[in-house]
Nucleic acid binder design. Structure first.
Lengths: 187, 187, 187, 187
DNA sequence: TATGAATGAGCGTTCATTCAT
DNA sequence: GATGAATGAACGCTCATTCAT
């Protein structure tokens, strides 16, 4: 019965995104997931493992979301814009996931393994991107640098939108997407 | 005796940047700062208050660093590049501060008050920037959007450099700075 | 199906002798016995009852072992020596049983009932012994005192041998058996 | 303030002798010792360390007790009898200590270190004994074998006395001491 | 009959905070 | 003012036991 596993992950995501890692005791996760406290340990070895597995799950989701509905026949700019908006929309529609990811990245939970897993999910994106560089359509920058403009800026936009610091209407969205494209496109 | 206060803040910064918020007990801060555990409470009401005050201090530092050595007579591009490099260099020379800030931003410690204080420190930068927009040298974007390219991307670069994921040599640095400038400059 | 009952008792004996009472969860016993965790409760009301029944079983075994191969026609000394060696050899060949017994004796599991059952197993030995006292071949000591020299010292010897603290070769064995006989024989 | 340390050790001794290791939660020890639960951890790293240190303390006491009031000028028999009675009386007057020791010996808490410490306490007794062997007054047996008759039988006697299984009045005491002496003395 | 997933009370331990010195 | 021993609530986790299948 994988239902309980899912309920635990969902509860963990909700509570950690709201209260942080150490504001989220296992007992509270159990209550929110409507399972016994001990039950969590049938599915996850420890709190740390639970958080790691949740990270992998969420990272997989956001990576998939970024690449969805992309037509390989489109121009590089179209692909870039689509990836950007996919990521942005995922963040807006799944703020808990986004907040959790950001907390995780900036925590001591991160390990070389989680970082490695991360790259794996992005493998399809990397190959698309390399062809564009070779075709002279993008600046000659490593993939890790490109992600700044299609992940970091995107998430920063979503965070400011959600916090209300910068409401991203259609106009502003167009400006920032264009800015990111200007950043990466070949001159 | 403000010496102890400083020692406590320094110890907190070091330990939290290394071990995270909940990996840093007050007793350890006291030991690292070479003060009694109770002494911390003469200077800071609680652990939460200590962390908030540390945030304000560090945020002030990085904001000042960003604006240092900027000649108002320079071109907008020169000012932008200088601000970018100032921030980047601050992160490289003060990784503890950077790591702490990133942890803080993505934690439930943040309050509307800390966000408000943040803006205050950046007031001088805002006016410089607005003039550039009015002069038609920058895209017509709000300050909060500009910061993505002179703070978020910059910090992202520094983090990748420190983690080893993307070593920022002179060439790569020039590419990413140029990319950011391309992002914000008027077409 | 008494097979499962035996498997459970055997698993319990092995695990408790290796890891102690509170180092032996029921789940581990179930695994070692290759039965479901709930199955144990079909055969034993509780962990405490399981341990009690195991004690009775093991106590019966060691008592039987002590009295085996004893020819009633032999001299009292021969009988004593045989009983001593029987016990010693049982301990060496069944260290788990010995360790379990010793743990049990020195635990709060013991009850008046378990002690009573113990005596029952030794009834045949008691009558042999009483005749020897009446015949003036042994010191006039109660059975409970005699057992010190044919059980406690014997087990102590076996424990030291197994732990390596005192390896009991033929010579040493002869010395300690003789010492015990000197202890109990009439002057 | 070593008072709390002593109170914790005393409470631990009492509760473990009554309820066993795993019948004695730290919270109960704290209550019995009239200290906060966390206070125990200022004096002892963990429950395991607490129990080990208690063992060393008690082992030292019983070893000292065994050797007290022994006049080196006395005959070997006098020394043997005194040591025997010293140990027996210690057990009668300190049944908690005796029960605790017996529980400890037959538990997985024991380590090579605790065994080594044990021998150290008995060093003075070993030298006395060796001289008696060399003088031909005792059977040629190793010290580890002698202890069976001056420790194991003694403790067995005390246990039977306390449990009521064999009340050790003056007469019975004389019989068992004589038996032990007969066991070890040279023929 | 046999199972093993599920439970939750209770464990050992930590740590923010207090307060007598 | 400065201390650090003491506190106890709250944590992560275990495991004897139950019960739906």
């Amino acid at each position: 019965m994988t239902d309980k596993r899912k309920a635990i992950l969902k509860a963990t995501l909700k509570l950690i995104s709201e209260n942080g890692f150490h504001g989220t005791p296992m007992s509270q996760i159990a209550e929110e997931a409507d399972v016994g406290a001990g039950t969590i340990y049938r599915y996850f070895e420890s709190k740390e493992v639970l958080i790691h597995e949740l990270f992998l799950e969420v990272k997989r989701e956001i990576s998939q979301a970024m690449l969805s509905d992309i037509s390989p026949e489109g121009s590089t700019e179209e692909i870039f814009r689509q990836a950007w908006l996919n990521t942005f929309n995922f963040c807006l529609q799944n703020p808990q996931e986004m907040i959790f990811l950001e907390q995780f990245y900036n925590s001591p939970f991160q390990t070389p393994e989680t970082e490695a897993a991360t790259l794996e999910y992005l493998a399809p994106a990397i190959s698309v991107f390399q062809k564009a560089v070779e075709a002279g359509e993008l600046k000659d920058m490593p993939f890790e640098m490109l992600t700044m403009f299609v992940h970091d800026v995107t998430v920063a936009s979503a965070k400011r939108h959600i916090s209300g610091a910068l409401v991203m209407d259609e106009t502003k969205l167009e400006i920032v997407v264009q800015a990111c494209w200007d950043a990466v496109k070949a001159n």
